[in-house]
Computed example of a mutant assay.
Amino acid sequence: MTEHKRLAGMPDIASHADPQVAGQLDWVGMNEIELPIMIDGCDGSRSQTTARVSAFVDLERPDKRGIHMSRLYLLLDQALAEHTVTPALLRHLLRDFLASHEDLSSHALLRLDFDYMVRRKSLKSDNSGWKRYPISLIAGLTGKDFSLEMALQITYSSTCPCSAALARQLIQDQFRKDFGPSGEVEAQAVLEWLGSEQGIVATPHSQRSAADLRLQLAPSFEAFPFEQMIDAVEDALKTPVQAAVKREDEQAFALLNGQNLMFCEDAARRVQTALMAQDRVIDFWARCRHFESLHPHNAVAIVTKGVEGGYKPIDGQPSGWRQG
């Protein structure tokens, strides 16, 4: 028996069996598919990483029981093995999804979740280290209408302005206690006091924080602006977390935090200003979360570009940027 005849004789329940209950389905497919992908860096380098992939089509035929999931997987496997991930590749894959289901579907959705690694120089020393940026690429196709999103998370440090003001007041009180309310004070004595524990009797609270971004990109661009968007937001926030740190780097980081006191509202406005200046970004949703060291809860601010009708994510996940 030939392979073709053997396969032809195998049952295909999804194609031939009637659905138990008739009805159209918005999305059918797979998520958490583990596949290697190739990513191009801004310097022309190419790197491989592992992605968790979601692939879906709609099922608009109420009389059909299911789709052909194996077709989606095989198309993904071949395309991602042969090409780097670009907007053009995602568009091509979505077209192939619909072509493989031309009698069943008219919408296709694709999502890739992966980590993008960037080597960052230390603030002062000659060292450098790796930083991880979680990235999601989300693409949708309806007819010829191609939509594209890039989501990412950027971790930074935030120092509370209110806490800083309260700490300064306590330092002033300690100064009056140690040197008296009035009169002349020798400069050397003040310098020595400032270098002692009394000179920093209170410190403002700081915390690791995260900017979660969803960016709707102009689909005409052929490369994803990973580092361009990362750099724009980190430059605006001023206090990105560091990898390799020596004492001089930690001191420089402390200075950056002291010069960039911010509530979550301040951080969100900085991110908004940075993204408004990006020509590639059609619309955006951004959330700044400060993982409070004072409270057992987070301080959160959310901002959008302000496009009429509000931000409409391709995959219908407005409150989050990465699927679980």
Rank of each mutant, 00 (worst) to 15 (best):
A268Q: 03
K246A: 09
M276R: 15
E248L: 06
R269K: 10
D249V: 02
V245M: 04
P240Y: 00
A274R: 01
L261M: 12
Q251K: 11
F263W: 14
N260C: 01
R269T: 03
D249Q: 05
G258F: 03
D266M: 13
G258R: 14
T273L: 14
A254D: 12
M262R: 08
L275K: 00
A274F: 00
A236D: 05
D235C: 01
A244I: 02
R270M: 10
M262T: 03
A267N: 05
G258L: 10
P240H: 02
A254E: 07
A244F: 10
A274K: 00
A252P: 09
Q242F: 04
G258Q: 15
A277Y: 13
V271E: 01
A244M: 12
F253Q: 06
N257H: 05
L255N: 12
E250V: 04
F253D: 10
A268Y: 08
E234N: 07
F253Y: 13
A267I: 07
Q259E: 15
F253K: 04
E248Q: 13
M262F: 07
E265W: 11
D249L: 01
R270F: 08
V245L: 07
E250T: 02
M262S: 15
R247I: 08
P240V: 00
V241A: 05
T273S: 15
E265N: 14
V271S: 00
L261V: 05
T239S: 03
D249M: 03
V245I: 14
G258I: 06
Q242K: 05
A243S: 05
A244W: 07
M276D: 15
M276F: 15
L237D: 00
D266Y: 08
R269G: 09
T239P: 01
E234F: 00
R269M: 05
R269V: 09
A243N: 01
L275M: 00
Q242I: 09
E248W: 06
A267K: 08
A252W: 09
A267M: 04
Q278D: 04
Q259A: 10
Q259G: 06
V271N: 01
R269L: 12
T239M: 07
